[in-house]
Design a binder for these strands. Structure first.
Lengths: 157, 157
DNA sequence: CTCTTTGCAAAAGTTTTGCACGCTC
DNA sequence: GAGCGTGCAAAACTTTTGCAAAGAG
């Protein structure tokens, strides 16, 4: 198993290229939003993005954040993260099916590859038992990342 | 594997008893909300509950639905269902960890027991690789239930 | 120069809060 | 009777829409 998370500058460039390839224009507000989400390891909600992106482009409006998120999601570049605390946050989407590992303390999101054969077997078995035609699955793990574990144990000292 | 869904009248009685045992009063509006959710096989959002529960108690207010849902969730009697289309719907929560199987056509929710040892193994492996201390997991399957499959194939004829 | 994109303002939708009255225990 | 629970109205949020002006290609 390998942690394949690697949000960085490269991502931002690719996303902008993808927007352009799909007939959308590249603008400063969009650059700021793309840069913000692509370089974050945390899932960010629209308001988080708005606040952070203003560091790159202060005149940015919240509406533009919503509209840009909509396009990035439509192009499959970002995905919504569902958590007990809410479902408004987004992170980079990787191609292929990925499972999420989310830190409940800092919101950091990592990805892991589930055992594909194992999941396929499970889906077939559940399908056969229930009569459902299974189309998709979500597997998410919640916990506390190594960094937050340290912080928590330090705070209690 | 066994489908252990069985929402019915009995559930409603138990929920009311549970509310009472926790110091909450039993009232007609609460009866209506409890009855509605406990007897539904579909995940219902607050407005759905409001509309259906009015059949039992026409004077019901939407605010009371929100407040009752809050208490039922707090007591662990219902749980929120997260779906691509939204995360405002609730269904009966069964004790013990259950995985969800959700029909994307009618919203019907069924439960299945995952392979516990398998999931434990997965969680340990991911924990070891990532440094995360894993606390919880969500496994959900999405598909089309047998009834909806028939409807769809009939409609296309 | 054309047409998309932007930010503001306002609207729409959802959830929460304040409060006087009513009902449960 | 005491105090929780209810429904209405209003507030607080979040997300979407209309529009004139600015900017990308």
């Amino acid at each position: 198993m390998k942690n394949c998370f690697s949000a960085d500058e490269t991502n931002a460039q690719q996303w902008l290229a993808c927007l352009q390839a799909n007939g959308y224009r590249i603008t400063e507000p969009r650059r700021a939003v793309v840069e913000t989400i692509a370089t974050s390891r945390q899932a960010l909600n629209p308001f988080d993005v708005f606040e952070r992106a203003r560091a790159y482009y202060p005149r940015l409006g919240l509406v533009t954040v919503y509209r840009t998120i909509e396009k990035l999601e439509e192009l499959g570049l970002i995905q919504r993260v569902h958590q007990p605390t809410g479902c408004q946050a987004f992170v980079t989407a990787f191609s292929g099916h990925q499972h999420l590992l989310i830190c409940q303390s800092c919101g950091r999101v990592e990805f892991f590859n589930g055992d594909v054969e194992q999941m396929d077997g499970l889906m077939r078995a559940v399908g056969a038992n229930s009569g459902f035609q299974i189309q998709d699955h979500w597997l998410q793990l919640f916990g506390v990342c190594a960094t937050c574990q340290q912080k928590i144990s330090n705070d209690s000292n």
